[in-house]
Simulated assay, not measured.
Amino acid sequence: MAVLFDGEIASSEGMERFGIRLASELRAGDLLVLTGPLGAGKTTLTRGIGAGLDVRGPVASPTFVLARTHPPLGEGGVPLVHVDAYRLGSAAELDDLDIDFDRSVVVVEWGSGFLDGVAESWLDVTIERPVGAGAPDAGASDATDADVTAPDDEPRRVTVVAHGPRWSAVTLP
């Protein structure tokens, strides 16, 4: 286990840019588990990852479909599978989604504790936001996990912890 990043991200735009940078290190078979309260920026980070992987979008919260696959736009690209495990009751229910972990980059929101034994290596991404910061964006596609936006766009603390051998030689800028 190693901390690849521990720092503050100043805005939603910064969170999306961080996702794009993170995507430059990702490849098929990579798994990311995002943890944070409602409105922390999990979907915004995933939107940046999708942009960095150049997948078909828009990347929005998969709350009501549980999992959404975004195919690559270019030849040789990697699909992004975006999962919302919030409404799942167990790891078995996650397994029932029949996710292609080996040939995709998989991002699981609310997935802590659901992925034991799924992967040898993964990234835990924790996003903390100030308590009571901002209000959900009225135009967000999913008000239950809407990202906080201006004028109350508060900085977030993001910690990326790597587990397993896949990440031993990786550093994040």
Rank of each mutant, 00 (worst) to 15 (best):
A92E: 15
I127W: 12
L32D: 06
V83F: 03
V81H: 09
V59C: 00
R87S: 15
S90V: 12
D100C: 05
L123R: 11
D84R: 09
L123I: 12
P58F: 00
V118E: 03
E25Q: 14
S90T: 14
I49G: 01
G76V: 12
E109S: 11
D95W: 15
R47F: 00
E25C: 11
L26A: 08
G117K: 12
R27M: 08
P58L: 00
V106D: 02
D95F: 15
R27K: 14
D124E: 15
V107M: 09
L22H: 04
V33M: 08
V55K: 09
S104M: 02
P62T: 09
A51P: 01
F64M: 12
L66W: 13
T63F: 07
G74F: 07
W122K: 14
G19F: 02
L115Q: 11
R21F: 04
F64T: 10
G117H: 14
G36M: 11
H82D: 04
G41D: 04
M15W: 01
S24T: 08
R56P: 00
A119S: 15
L97G: 07
E13Y: 05
L45S: 02
R21P: 00
V78K: 06
G89Y: 05
I99M: 10
F64Q: 11
F64V: 11
T35F: 01
G14W: 10
L22V: 05
I127H: 06
D100E: 10
V65K: 07
S112V: 12
E75A: 15
L94M: 13
G29W: 05
S24A: 14
A40P: 06
L31A: 01
L97M: 08
E13C: 07
P72D: 09
R17S: 02
F101M: 03
E109R: 07
R56Q: 00
R87T: 15
D116R: 15
P72Y: 07
R68E: 08
M15A: 05
G48S: 11
F64S: 14
F64D: 13
A85C: 12
V107Q: 09
E13V: 09
F101W: 10
V108K: 11
I127K: 06
G50T: 00
L73F: 02
L22Y: 03
L34W: 07
L45Q: 04
I99A: 09
D95V: 15
G39H: 10
G117Q: 14
D84M: 07
D116E: 15
H82S: 07
V125W: 04
